[in-house]
Design a protein around this nucleic acid. Structure first.
Lengths: 247, 247
DNA sequence: CAGTGGTCTAGACCACGCG
DNA sequence: GCGTGGTCTAGACCACTGT
């Protein structure tokens, strides 16, 4: 058995997890201070903090320096719908989320030149998006579009734009192809603080490149979500020109 | 500035990361013992171990109890190709990987009944796959197929099966639709030990459900990869007017 | 200011791997 | 047995948040 030596930190994590999932501690509520919890469970602060780190990596609690540890609101998993495709019913039923959008113009550099296949220095419209679910942020995006393709209105009045926020979509036309690359990685310091996750908690990072029928790349998006708060769903339908042996 | 107080653990992590990425410590090589490193950097063992945890969560090192900390082989990112689609050129160029496959018959239960849309207790063929890149494991899969759809030969002679291993494909026919759900989460204890990652290091978990044209679910696969060692790529083509021909 | 989390120390003991 | 990593302690000091 792997758990032959049940570590104190996991015992405590299990105990607190129980209290959270059974509702004995309500979402939004503050946990007792770490010093309290440590003395209650008769462990050192280091051990107690490791227990909390487990819960944080599971997305159950949120740490705020100087204020305390808080139970996150019920893990209503956000659904990211890949492929610019049809909307999942669950997405349509998404609760109201707030999205802040800030748009600027930047020059292509580094990775962006590769993704967008433009020379360095090309003017790009950059949209920095952060979405919130109530208080807690739950998504980050930087979307880059060649300057001449950016919808004019957006640059002036970004806040008026109401988009399918789980996708951070800005384009108004459907591209011919979308390639999305997904990986799990530790958050950058900026992401960790913005999303209120631990530097140990993974983010689900999605790099989305949309290409027009002409082959021109019309959008590159760098998205980051708290790994435990999102499911990215990709649906692929196969044309019937392939052999279909299922009766 | 976020780094106003550059923590010792990050300084050390940065230093070691430098030595690893510049090749001053070779892949496969063992790092000095934690006690050594701690005294060299003049930090406590706890702090040094936190520094190593950072590198581990980045997939740079591998900890082996009783033996030491080892530099992982160059992060050759595995590419998981979603959607049962055409193979990415990079996938075709994948190095030889070893895959172990163990097949058994189980009865549908829990989540499986939902995924496969079969009643509890239905006979399923289960394929437990582990793939290795040299020494290090880099992927886990459990694939479930309704018993009557399982290729007969596989059940008897699984080892003979050589499949596109980055996809853990078992089906020999293309399904009509594939839905893949991706999330990042902490590994289960089993995954952590099999993949040799920390319990804090995220796995990229992919749940794949393949459906035939009839609507019958012909496969459910639960995949887990070390988050930092894989990119999952999903490509969606939109054929609004143009009938695409891949190629 | 008091209370909280964030980082760190200088030890200790245990479990594992290997000769 | 010995060296290794894994867990833990009982403090300490700093940075942040609120009053």
């Amino acid at each position: 058995m792997i758990r032959s030596v049940p570590s104190r930190q996991h015992d405590i994590a299990d105990d607190l997890r129980q209290q959270i999932t059974t509702g004995r501690i309500s979402p939004g509520e503050r946990l007792p201070s770490e010093a309290d919890l440590a003395s209650r469970h008769k462990v050192s602060t280091v051990t107690l903090r490791r227990a909390l780190a487990v819960l944080q990596s599971e997305g159950l609690i949120e740490k705020v320096q100087g204020r305390g540890n808080f139970v996150r609101h019920p893990v209503r998993k956000i659904v990211y719908v890949g492929g610019w495709g049809t909307l999942d019913p669950r997405t349509a039923a998404e609760p109201a989320l707030r999205v802040t959008v800030r748009s600027t113009t930047v020059q292509a550099h580094g990775q962006l030149t590769t993704l967008l296949k433009v020379p360095a220095g090309s003017p790009l419209a950059e949209f920095s998006c952060t979405s919130f679910e109530g208080e807690s942020p739950h998504g980050l995006a930087r979307i880059y579009i060649p300057r001449d393709l950016a919808p004019a209105g957006l640059l002036d009045n970004a806040s008026a734009y109401r988009a399918p926020i789980t996708r951070f979509a800005v384009l108004t036309v459907s591209p011919a192809a979308v390639r999305e690359t997904v990986c799990a990685r530790p958050p950058t310091p900026e992401e960790a603080s913005t999303l209120r996750i631990a530097s140990a908690a993974p983010v689900l990072a999605i790099t989305r490149v949309a290409t027009a029928a002409t082959g021109r790349v019309v959008e590159a998006a760098l998205l980051a979500f708290p790994g435990n708060r999102i499911d990215a769903v990709f649906t692929t339908h196969h044309m019937l020109d392939e052999r279909q042996t299922q009766g």
